[in-house]
Design a protein around this nucleic acid. Sequence first.
DNA 1: AATTTAATACCAAACGAATGTATGTATGTC
DNA 2: GACATACATACATTCGTTTGGTATTAAATT
Lengths: 215, 215
Amino acid sequence: MARNKYPEVTVEKILEVAQRLFLEKGYDGTTIQDIVNELGGLTKGAIYHHFKSKEEIMDALGDKMFFDNNPFSAIKQRKDLNGLQKMREVVKINHADTSRTEISRQSISLLKNPRILAGMIDTDRRLIAPFWLELIEEGKRDGSIHTSYAKELSELLPLLTNLWLAPSVYPASAIEMFRKLSFVRDMFDNMGVPLIDDEILDIAKRFFEQIETEN
Amino acid sequence: MARNKYPEVTVEKILEVAQRLFLEKGYDGTTIQDIVNELGGLTKGAIYHHFKSKEEIMDALGDKMFFDNNPFSAIKQRKDLNGLQKMREVVKINHADTSRTEISRQSISLLKNPRILAGMIDTDRRLIAPFWLELIEEGKRDGSIHTSYAKELSELLPLLTNLWLAPSVYPASAIEMFRKLSFVRDMFDNMGVPLIDDEILDIAKRFFEQIETEN
DNA sequence: AATTTAATACCAAACGAATGTATGTATGTC
DNA sequence: GACATACATACATTCGTTTGGTATTAAATT
């Protein structure tokens, strides 16, 4: 097997294995050889043919993981919701997704995986924030949102939810997590974007409690 | 020279060199040998005698850099200031310090130095946030601050100023930086901690503009 | 349609840089 | 003088990356 007719399949396979291993054992904890070993027949040469470095695999993963499961595209064409309501929907969809992925299960600590942490922060800013910004602007137009800090809020939202609310970075009990989220709600309320309604707060509360009892 | 009478001096020297090189060339960009070369006569054995790994040097540096230049200890015994005023003083002292250090000069990009980024986030939470918390509590007692989110605000403050307001992570023009800081001011005002007064805002504004014209 | 050409998708092996270790030695302390 | 400390030196190991080759497919040419 010296050549594959459908190389995209190989690329996908590499990314899939890399994602699993990075989340299991971290970025530094995963060697190129580890990835090769789970590739089934392929060798290091295949990886370095499709990616010029280990870093590039990581970079590609950040984008892929987002686009694979883009909660924004799901509510894009919903005509029955205003901007604010769309934002709330994204929060719920996002929660439903991530509550079963590995990341939130703190399978790995972000602080001990600096490369993954940095990738997340970068992805949040480059890819996710613009989508939030779009929804905030939409909300401003339809009157559901009133703020002069659209850009700032759109940057801050993923930073707070993905980093500050990540217990692996900022350890917190269920009660503390709930207080932090309440803080975020108050803050966004104050800033003109009442994003976190009672339903979301309630879902989150039960989620925090469930996680705690699991450990 | 096989043995030093004052080994602390050696430890200090290692940390001093490591700090300079890490800030110049980044963590990954600096090899143990690089450090050795600037140590003057010492060898790798010396480093691995005092530190068990490169990571441990980095960890030690995070703490050292904070304690070397602790703005909180400077205002600790000021009896003429209430809690809020002390917080404002710390902000000013901190600005005066960092405005001439290398970090703010974006000599290195934090995103390309994930290990330094993670170290910063961790130091902020472990060391810096507790000091802020103490001042907020003091402010609550003396009536200069009214909030039920002391813990949350103390965690968020360093996160926002050191990460979100770091142009190397979140690129921004002078105007955008000013808007972000205005946002932080409004937000802390809303949450009962009017930390950023006109003077601080003005100092920061000039600082942003100065940096921009320098490039 | 047959043949050549060139680019692609890999494989196998080795390289090189950097972290870390093992062992030895001199110096200070009790 | 015994022993721990503070290093030096040389070596081992790990891991990302490079290099050179080969088979296969697609495109170009005849």
